[in-house]
Design a protein around this nucleic acid. Structure first.
Length: 272
DNA sequence: ATGGGCACCTGGCTGC
DNA sequence: TGCAGCCAGGTGCCCA
């Protein structure tokens, strides 16, 4: 599910309820996630004040007094803020109960997400330390892409999802950004021209910003902190639109498999 | 270093 | 109605 816009939407949604609150306790109902939730999580978190709610790539970082909670939503995870007596659903893995009386609840049917506690700088954590730049930062440019794509023979679509080069772009927004930049997803990344890479960098920023503004894309599971879905699905040009007419030229959208993931594109518009 | 493929999981949909 | 098969917003890890 959640790519950068969905994680950022979640961050913005949960932050007001968490900021400066104290954690009353943690209720773990299902420890099994990508890595099991630590047995001592309640003991470690109870009583701590929440200092900040940040995002790095697709990770949410909840800074506490003695360390940071690192959350990932995987493919199907979501976080909601609600009264703790709210009925528990399948796959509600844990509640973080706050001194406000509200709770942060983590739900993840497919269990590809994670909830970890790390002492010290979370950016030095094994999972975070090798991540590439944030695409919405000003330093993320076509020049940067040119530098890191040089000599790479992998298809551009595949490389866009490589978190060591840039973060936050997953299967939906990789296809969407390439459509906006009019680039064929099969093109070898290292063969793209500087002008194409400048356009691609702009397209990535644009599609991520528009998606954040729409509250993200909901295909199946994703909901924001208040339970609402994201509305960017209506704005998608190619993702899951196989056989439907291109919104620009009416040519049927096509899809194929690339690195075990579905890629969608318009064969007429994306010839770059 | 790079690239490719698998694994981890549940649930929803399709077609027989 | 039942069931097998296929597919799904991610990413760490192992192998060539």
């Amino acid at each position: 599910m959640p790519e950068l816009p969905e994680v950022e939407t979640t961050r913005r949604g949960i932050a007001p309820a968490l900021q400066d609150r104290r954690i009353r306790g943690v209720v773990v109902r299902e420890r099994r996630l990508r890595w099991p939730i630590a047995r001592d999580l309640n003991a470690r978190l109870s009583g701590q004040r929440i200092r900040a709610i940040r995002r790095r790539a697709k990770y949410l970082l909840i800074d506490l007094e003695t360390g940071t909670l690192i959350l990932h939503l995987g493919m199907s995870g979501s976080l909601r803020v609600l009264p703790p007596e709210t009925g528990v659903l399948a796959h509600d893995h844990l509640d973080i109960v706050l001194d406000s009386g509200l709770a942060l609840r983590f739900n993840d049917p497919r269990r590809f997400g994670c909830v970890l506690f790390a002492e010290g700088d979370p950016l030095s954590h094994k999972l975070l330390r090798r991540l590439g730049p944030e695409p919405l930062e000003e330093s993320f440019t076509g020049d940067y892409l040119q530098r890191v794509f040089r000599g790479r023979r992998v298809a551009i679509k595949t490389l866009l999802m490589n978190g060591q080069l840039l973060v936050g772009v997953g299967n939906i927004y990789a296809s969407e950004a390439l459509f906006r930049a009019r680039i064929n997803p099969r093109r070898a990344a290292g063969r793209l021209k500087p002008a194409q890479l400048r356009k691609l960098a702009r397209s990535i920023k644009q599609v991520l910003n528009l998606a954040i503004r729409a509250g993200g894309t909901t295909l199946r599971d994703y909901v924001g902190a208040n339970g609402d879905p994201g509305y960017f699905r209506r704005k998608l040009y190619v993702y899951e639109r196989s056989g439907k007419p291109c919104r620009v030229c009416r040519t049927p959208i096509r899809h194929f498999t690339q690195g075990q993931r579905s890629t969608y594109f318009c064969p007429h518009c994306q010839t770059g």
